[in-house]
Every structure is written in structure tokens, then in C-alpha cells.
């Protein structure tokens, strides 16, 4: 059979596209789903609504909550430290 160069290009396009899809989008996920770790990993992403390919922190909704929680933790720790310092000062009669 004789195909024109354009037809051959389109065949190549379809073949490479199908190969990529079969390897990365069908085969690899199926292979990975056999692993318990990967299943847990996937479940954690679903639970927290995380896209592992997110480019920036603003693309990860949970970051807003983690930021708030961390700021609260830092404030709490600083308050405790200040209280400890003022207690020590009072103890030494300063």
C-alpha cells in the first residue's frame, strides 16, 4: 500500500498519541493502582482536594488553612514564651 507523505504524518501522529495515552494514561495508572502506597496517596489527594501538579501555592486550596493554622501556632508559641519570660522576671523580683 502506498500512502502519501501527509497520510504517513497523520498515522505517525495517531500512533505516537495513542502510544503516549496507553503508556502514561492507561498502563501506568493501572500499574500504580496495584500498590497500596499509591492508593493511600491518591486517597489523601482526594480527601484534601489537592492536584499534585498544581504550579503555585494559590492553586492548592488547603494552603490557606495551613497558613492560618501555622500563624496561630506561632502566635501561641510566642505568647507562651513571653509568659515564661515575665514569670521568670517576677520570680527574680525584676
Amino acid at each position: 500500500m502506498n500512502f502519501s507523505p501527509t497520510m504517513r504524518q497523520w498515522f505517525r501522529f495517531a500512533a505516537y498519541g495513542a502510544m503516549f495515552w496507553l503508556v502514561f494514561c492507561v498502563g501506568l495508572p493501572r500499574l500504580l493502582s496495584l500498590s497500596e502506597s499509591w492508593r493511600t496517596f491518591g486517597a489523601a489527594q482526594d480527601k484534601w482536594n489537592i492536584h499534585a501538579g498544581a504550579v503555585y501555592y494559590t492553586d492548592v486550596p488547603v494552603t490557606r488553612d495551613t497558613e492560618t493554622a501555622n500563624r496561630a501556632a506561632v502566635r501561641q508559641a510566642l505568647d507562651k514564651r513571653l509568659q515564661a519570660i515575665s514569670k521568670a522576671d517576677t520570680g527574680t523580683g525584676m
Binding site: 493511600t40 496517596f41 489523601a44 489527594q45 480527601k47 484534601w48 489537592i50 492536584h51 499534585a52 501538579g53 498544581a54 504550579v55 503555585y56 501555592y57 492553586d59 492548592v60 488547603v62 494552603t63
Partner: peptide, 12 residues
Amino acid sequence: DATGSVAAAGAF
């Protein structure tokens, strides 16, 4: 490296 993957690995 990737920000999303960091959150995913942390959640794991």
C-alpha cells in the same frame, strides 16, 4: 519541587 506534589506528599 512542585507545590501541588508537596501538599500531596504532606497529606500522605
